[in-house]
Nucleic acid binder design. Sequence first.
RNA 1: GUGGGCGUAGCUCAGUUGGUUAGAGCACCAGGUUGUGGUUCUGGGGGUCGUGGGUUCGAAACCCACCGCUCACCCCA
Length: 416
Amino acid sequence: MIKAIKGTKDILPDSIGKWKHVENLISLIFKNYNYKEIRTPVFEETSLFARGIGEATDIVGKEMYTFEDRSKTSITLKPEMTASVVRAFIEHSLGKKQSLNKLYYISPMFRQERPQAGRLREFHQFGAEALGSSSPLLDVEMISMAYGILSGLGLKDLTIKINSLGTPESRKKYTQELRKYLNDKEHLLSGESKERISKNILRIFDSKIENDIEVMKGAPLLLDYLDNESKDDFEKVKSSLTSSKISFEIDTSLVRGLDYYTKTTFEIISGKVGAQSALCGGGRYDLLVEQLGGEPTPGTGFAAGIERILIACENENSFEVTEPSINLYIVCLEKTLMAKTYELAQSIRRNNISVEMDYIGRSIKAQMREANKFNAKFALFFGGEEYQSHKSQLKNMETGEQEIISLENIINKINV
RNA sequence: GUGGGCGUAGCUCAGUUGGUUAGAGCACCAGGUUGUGGUUCUGGGGGUCGUGGGUUCGAAACCCACCGCUCACCCCA
């Protein structure tokens, strides 16, 4: 039996209702904030991600779905969306058509990691990017939208964490200090953390090993080394969040694993999804556009994982979707009349009324059971006599009431 | 890439210290007299017990290998 590729999942009709519910809320919220939808190809030239996300990141280093196409071009299935959006932004000169571009997306992403709860190889993200302003208000807007969607789905067990990474200059100054601090403490660190000293020193803060945590408790904090502008912006983010009545935690160890972040970064965590608790992550990336060959343009954005959100919703029982129903089920009383039944169904469907019938030749009892299963509002009994007289029994499935009506009159009766 | 757990019907699972034709619930199909659902009753179909090898008179149960799923580490949505 051929099965879906490891780490990929079919979304079956049973769960489509939940997906639609989430997607509808996403587009509603983004519409309220005047974000426009953008769609980009599922694959891009590999170098876009290598340059955009950063060669040293895990995503680029070991998680990308990369292959050569027939013309030997290196292609990569998008592991995240920001690089693609920025590429499109540059390619179509969106910054020249409009000074501030507010964009959103819902799209599948691909990363070749070992699957686990809340982590798939093909997964779906929605997110937004605002290109053309360095205002911290937009950082707050990102958090507000993300939080608005998550809480709008009924999620309660949420924690918003924020941090500031500052400018590259201030970060450089800081990492030098951090290195100094760790100089004589290296032997206390775990092997992995030792490696990070040279590779990506900020990530030592992410370590969950007790000794590492102990050592890092006394470490200098990035927030103390921020340049004035970053510091100022971070203050504005905090006060604006507070006045928006969004509670948050400052997490100085919050280090986003993507190289392009500057200044404000944030994450929204759920306690209800297992180990992969980040539902959403984002931040400012003021240098990315330039880095990818565009005019210097500040940007900020976030991405959220739909599968993780659905797991959290499931575990919190945060919303219910109503079963879809159909307007009418036509019970075919004589198998020889199936074609006539179909014609009747068609004529009713043309009026935007949803109609189902039996195509298998089932018993009347079975057909009624079907009507019930599909939540049909009405059932119509159609046989030879009815075909001749153009009159049928129409049954209201909720009340059980039944009346004889002329077939020409069905549409009015059902619409009531 | 590393480690743990698990593979019996479409789904959720039973299956006693290895012992006859492998079970239940749900789902599915048919029926409970003349053309009518949800509750209920009766009956039915469906499994090379993940795959391959081994131990044994005898394996779904025990051993080994492989495959798959799952959870966790790393990192991230």
